[in-house]
């Protein structure tokens, strides 16, 4: 499977662009947090496409963002429970 490029994305509609990135991102996140992969991927897809492409190429960037998303998600869930 060839890497996702900006030019490949440019030819797709905006919501399809997110779909294309999500399809690449999800397996990488699943390997880190299988149970929360869907939610974490959904959160990360709110980031700019250019940064998402960078994350696909850079495991360190991806890991950092996944950890950030995980903290936000846990804080959100804690808030829901105490509300």
């Amino acid at each position: 499977r060839e890497p996702l490029s900006a030019s490949m994305l440019a030819s797709a509609l905006p919501h399809v662009q997110k779909q294309m990135i999500g399809d690449r991102l999800y397996p990488l996140i699943y390997a880190l947090h299988s149970e929360l992969a869907g939610k974490i991927t959904g959160m990360l897809l709110e980031i700019d496409n250019s940064e998402l492409l960078h994350m696909l190429e850079s495991p360190e960037s991806l890991n950092a963002k996944v950890e950030e998303a995980l903290i936000m998600l846990q804080a959100h869930q804690a808030e829901e429970q105490t509300d």
Binding site: H15, G38, T41, G42, E46, E80
Partner: peptide, 26 residues
Amino acid sequence: SNGSSVNWPPEFHPGVPWKGLQSIDP
């Protein structure tokens, strides 16, 4: 008790059309 924040974040499923942002935006 059925606030929309409970549905956050939108969950991505591989192979399923993504409409996460559309479901959040008005």
